[in-house]
């Protein structure tokens, strides 16, 4: 299992909210990314928290600097909507592109990026909110509903050529109250591409509860790291003790 540090960025600051809202400043993206790399993170995800809302992307210069020091895979997401955006992101040094809003608006975009750069480059990002007994996909950082059923959408994204799914539970995100395990389990079992579970991790008990039910390929962490709840080395020790294969 990969342990991924997720940094949501707004106006050159890493920010953190609850349910993707009420954003609070955490620190400098490059400093934090380097810190998590040195702690043993397996990957870094940079998400522009406001890009798709305002139709811009300011992450490129951050990525350019980050990949000079950080020798692990870097994913960039938030507001990427054209092949030109993708090219700029890859030239800046990103290895993978996370796409949510642009895929909902035009699903063929996923296929176009996958055909040009390979599926391994395409991380389909899903923001899931629980509605009754199912989940609906949201865009623009959990602000706008799409009417898409998350399970169907995940299967569609795989068919379109996505290489991975970053699955964020908007309900659990930032709460440190644990993962939305039934959400992760249903998607992880439905698609044959790797799933990155995101949202809600607070204690090692949460990892244990998740792994007892389903084993996603990766977990993306934000609050746990930003608020120093548990260093990555300890998280990996806990995962190792649960017989998971992790890089140490």
């Amino acid at each position: 299992m990969r342990v991924i540090a997720r940094l949501d960025v707004k106006n050159e600051f890493v920010i953190k909210g609850i349910h993707l809202e009420g954003l609070r400043k955490i620190g400098d993206p490059n400093e934090l990314a380097l810190q998590y790399y040195l702690q043993g993170a397996d990957e870094i995800i940079f998400m522009d928290a406001v890009a798709s809302l305002y139709d811009r992307n300011n992450l490129f210069s951050i990525i350019r600097k980050a990949c000079e020091d950080i020798l692990i895979p870097i994913t960039i997401g938030g507001g990427l909507r054209t092949m030109e955006d993708v090219k700029t992101a890859l030239l800046a040094g990103a290895d993978k592109i996370a796409i949510n809003t642009a895929a909902v608006k035009r699903p063929a975009f996923i296929s176009e990026v996958a055909e040009k750069y390979g599926s391994q480059c395409v991380v389909a990002s899903i923001e899931a909110k629980k509605i009754g007994n199912h989940w609906e996909a949201y865009i623009d950082n959990g602000r706008e509903k799409t009417g898409l059923e998350v399970l169907d959408w995940a299967i569609k994204l795989q068919a379109l050529g996505a290489g991975e799914i970053l699955l964020t539970s908007v309900d659990q995100e930032g709460t440190r109250q644990g993962f939305d395990i039934s959400l992760i389990k249903s998607i992880n079992e439905a698609v044959s591409i790797p799933v990155i579970a995101c949202g809600g991790a607070g204690t090692d008990l949460h990892f244990k509860q998740l792994i007892q039910e389903t084993c996603p390929s990766a977990i993306a962490l934000a609050s746990v790291l930003h608020y120093n709840l548990m260093p990555i080395s300890i998280i990996k020790e806990k995962l190792l003790a649960m017989k998971l294969q992790v890089r140490v």
Binding site: R2, P194, R247
Partner: peptide, 13 residues
Amino acid sequence: TFPPYKLPHIGWN
């Protein structure tokens, strides 16, 4: 064999 193994194979080995 899926499950549990996924493709692409992405990870540290």
